[in-house]
């Protein structure tokens, strides 16, 4: 029984790992070997390191990598802070018209992103955000879904804890920072990891708001290996292999906490 289970799990695991293996294998091939038949995992007699050599010496891939890291780290931290504060206000403090304002927030979820691109582009030009990483960070700070999740968490938050803090003389800010925020670690960690992956993959925003290659992020860099007539898959896969490293490291470091946080807090918040 145990052996059978191992075999089934291994097969399922293989299905998930296959795209990664293909990606790695393709990154060491020439363009005209990408869709060769039969599929060859590695051409041992002629491994092509040229894709990596090109990326590391002739393209600004390391700059793209650092831009992506800056955008994602700053965005996630700001987003978490904003979502926690706003969620606390909507979920716990429940001020006057809170529900109405929150509904307006939610309504914003139904506006397709593409519709807001042109006004956003014009606005960013006026405030000088175009072709800067701020154009990617600022829109990421306010995320309605994150606010919604934190609000749900604070709706069920034990009120006695905060009341006790009030009794001890804490104000709203102090009780939030000292009591509510530490207890909201689990949903915030979940939110942080999900936001990390989401922002890391963003392509459309950098495409529209950035101009200079030295400001590009990795997803935009990956797409730049696309010609008028088709893709340069081998180079794209080599870049994808480089791009996946920070994501893998983040996930592996936080894997245990991530699973725990989902189990204890759930994505419900």
């Amino acid at each position: 029984m145990k052996i059978l289970r191992t075999i089934v799990f291994s097969l399922v695991g293989l299905i998930f790992v296959t795209p990664l293996i293909w990606m790695l294998s393709t990154s060491f091939k020439y363009e005209n070997q990408v869709f060769e038949k039969p599929f060859v995992l590695v051409h041992w007699d002629d491994i092509n390191f040229g894709n990596y050599r090109y990326l590391l010496t002739e393209s600004p891939v390391l700059t793209w990598l650092s831009n992506s890291l800056i955008v994602v780290v700053v965005s996630v931290l700001c987003r978490l802070l904003f979502a926690a504060v706003t969620g606390y206000a909507f979920g716990y403090l429940r001020f006057r018209y809170a529900n109405t304002i929150f509904l307006i927030y939610l309504a914003a979820l139904f506006i397709p992103y593409q519709l807001s691109l042109l006004p956003q582009f014009i606005a960013f030009r006026y405030i000088g955000f175009l072709d800067t990483l701020w154009a990617l960070i600022v829109p990421n700070i306010v995320d309605i879904l994150s606010i919604f999740l934190m609000r749900q968490f604070f709706l069920t938050f034990p009120r006695d804890f905060i009341h006790a803090a009030y009794m001890e003389g804490s104000g709203v800010v102090r009780s939030f920072v000292r009591i509510a925020l530490p207890l909201a670690q689990s949903p915030m960690l979940t939110l942080g990891i999900l936001s990390f992956f989401m922002i890391w993959d963003q392509y459309y925003q950098p495409l529209i708001f950035l101009k200079s290659p030295e400001m590009f992020t990795l997803p935009l860099g990956i797409h730049s290996f696309q010609t008028q007539f088709g893709h340069e898959y081998a180079k794209q896969m080599a870049l994808a292999c480089i791009a996946i490293v920070p994501v893998l490291i983040t996930f592996l470091i936080l894997q245990k906490r991530f699973v725990e946080s989902i189990v204890t807090a759930g994505i419900k918040g």
């Binding site: 691109l117 042109l118 582009f121 014009i122 030009r125 459309y204 495409l207 529209i208 101009k211 200079s212 290659p213 935009l220 797409h223 730049s224 696309q226 010609t227 008028q228």
Partner: peptide
């Protein structure tokens, strides 16, 4: 301004329309 071909028209249209 270098733009991946796939999204070239979108970027061009937004830039020129704005």
């Amino acid at each position: 301004i270098s733009v991946p071909h796939e999204q070239y028209i979108n970027k061009r249209n937004i830039m020129l329309a704005s």
